[in-house]
Design a protein around this nucleic acid. Sequence first.
DNA 1: ATTGACTCCGTACATAAGTACGGAAGCTAT
DNA 2: ATAGCTTCCGTACTTATGTACGGAGTCAAT
Lengths: 138, 138
Amino acid sequence: MSGLTIGNVAKRAGVGVETIRFYERQGLIEQPQKPGVGFRHYPADVVLRVRFIRHAKELGFSLREIGELLDLSLEPEQNCGEVRMRAEAKIADIDCRIESLEKMKGALSRLVVACGTQNQAQSCPIIESIVEESSSAD
Amino acid sequence: MSGLTIGNVAKRAGVGVETIRFYERQGLIEQPQKPGVGFRHYPADVVLRVRFIRHAKELGFSLREIGELLDLSLEPEQNCGEVRMRAEAKIADIDCRIESLEKMKGALSRLVVACGTQNQAQSCPIIESIVEESSSAD
DNA sequence: ATTGACTCCGTACATAAGTACGGAAGCTAT
DNA sequence: ATAGCTTCCGTACTTATGTACGGAGTCAAT
């Protein structure tokens, strides 16, 4: 009863067994010690960990970045200054993403409105609104 | 003077020439007609289009999804109901992403606060806060 | 003890998204 | 008209992220 088999972890997290093993190889989750006899047993919280990985992936974080996020959350008692700085950098990154998504949403909303009012003229609102960097020389 | 060469487009968009050609093959940008003699000329707005693609990729959209976003913005005059529905679906998707990012940000902020106050006890705030789905049976 | 499902492990295959290469052709400045 | 870029095109290679396969071991139920 102390722990789940890899198949149970996979089922509960909504991924395949092979994905669990792949994440182990990538160092994103820890492979439990193999008992002298029998199968490995996983603590229940790896299910949460795997779900977090999937979530973060859908949000556009790479596995490397996700590893950094997970490392942050696991070493909170020492090196506080360091952890704090990295956490704040991640927060700034997330703020940028949210801002870009808000812009994209705004452009799409304007598109929907234009659709309703037959008010043409804007050629490509999405593209127009999402880009803000200045161009470089030619 | 009427248009940029592929190299200029690439430079202005901040990508390599090969990336432009790849996006052409994927149908994300249109390859201009090749003139009888000489090189192709690209209208200036493909630069914006490429920048949009890069932006959207950083936000976690796949090239297929990005193609759908771009198609939305380019056919705004006919099939309004259809376009409108797809746009609203994209908006809902974006709302979900923003919500998840807000949750992740909240977890990171709590981590930063915990770092400052030596108030340990939460084992893994990031994971705890980002996961909300219910688990399945075993 | 046997059957059927599952684990374990290494390796191979798959897909998305580029990135690099090589040779022929075109363009530009000297 | 020649040198040194760039374009053009097909093809091959790379990286990230999984997925699938095959054979041997293990477990649980009959």
